[in-house]
Design a binder for these strands. Sequence first.
DNA 1: CTTAAAATGTTATATTATAACATTACATTA
DNA 2: TAATGTAATGTTATAATATAACATTTTAAG
Lengths: 134, 134
Amino acid sequence: MALASENLTKNQKTVLDILENSSEPLKAYTILFDIQKKGIKSPLQVYRALDKLIEIGKVHKIESRNSYVACKHEGCNAKTSTSFLICENCDSVTELTGNNLISYFSKQAEKNNFNYKKHNLEIFGLCKNCKLKN
Amino acid sequence: MALASENLTKNQKTVLDILENSSEPLKAYTILFDIQKKGIKSPLQVYRALDKLIEIGKVHKIESRNSYVACKHEGCNAKTSTSFLICENCDSVTELTGNNLISYFSKQAEKNNFNYKKHNLEIFGLCKNCKLKN
DNA sequence: CTTAAAATGTTATATTATAACATTACATTA
DNA sequence: TAATGTAATGTTATAATATAACATTTTAAG
C-alpha cells in the first residue's frame, strides 16, 4: 500500500503544492486565483481538493481565519484534531504536536462528564521573530 | 460605574436575549430571522450587536461553526480567549473556565519561543446526556 | 474488459460577513 | 440648555466563503 500522498490527483497536487510553498496559511479564493493558470477554474475544484487533503491529514484548516495550511509532519496524526500557534504580527503558523495536549484535554473534558473525541486549538500571540522586532 | 450589560442598546438587548434563551449556539442569520418582528431588518444590525456583545464578553463566537453563544458566567473574563466543550450529537456547548488552561497554553507556547496572548479552544465529543443515550 | 467508486467540470446558488454613507440618540460639559 | 463628540442606527449594496446539483471522465480493483 502506497502513502496517501502518492495517490494524489492533479488538482490535489496543485493545491497541496501551493500550500506547501507558502510561508503562511492561504484562503481558498487566494489559492483559486493563484492557480487558475493551471487549469483550475472554479471554487469547487479548490474546495474539493482541500477536503481530500484535510481528510488525509496533509492540510489543516485554521477555523478562525478561514484559511488552510499544509502540514509539515510526516504521517501527521492530526487528521481530526489540530493545535496551532498563530502569530498576530506576521500570520505565520506553527503546529503543536505530541499527544500530551490530547490527554490533557481528555482530562479537562472528563471533569465535565464529557467524552473527548477531538479538538481545535488556536493560540494567538507573537512568534520568535516578531517578539524580537517589537 | 454601571455594568456593561446595563448599558446595552435595544438591538444589543434583543440579540443577547435570544442567545440567552437558546439551548445551543445560533447563527447570525438564524438570529436575524427570529427577531425580524422586533424591528431588526438587516444582517448588519445583527453583526453589529454581536460585535459589541463579544467585545464586552457577554457573547462568544464558536469559530468552527460560525455560530454565537451567550456567556453564562458573571463578569466572564473570556473577552478574548474562549474554551468550549461542543457536543457532536446535540450541539450543546459548555464553556470551560479557570485560568489553568491559560497557564498551560502559555507554557506550551513558551516551549516554542512563542509569546502567548490569547486562544480559542474547541473540544468536540459527547456531552453527559448524549453519552448515556448512545 | 468490466464495473464501481472517486474525481472532475460546470453552472448556479447558498451562506456568512462587511463597505459605504447618511442619520439619529445620547452622555458630557461648557 | 446648547454645543459637541462618540457611539449606535438604518439602509442599500456587495464582498467573501462555501455548497448543491448533475452530467461526464478517470481510476483502480476484480
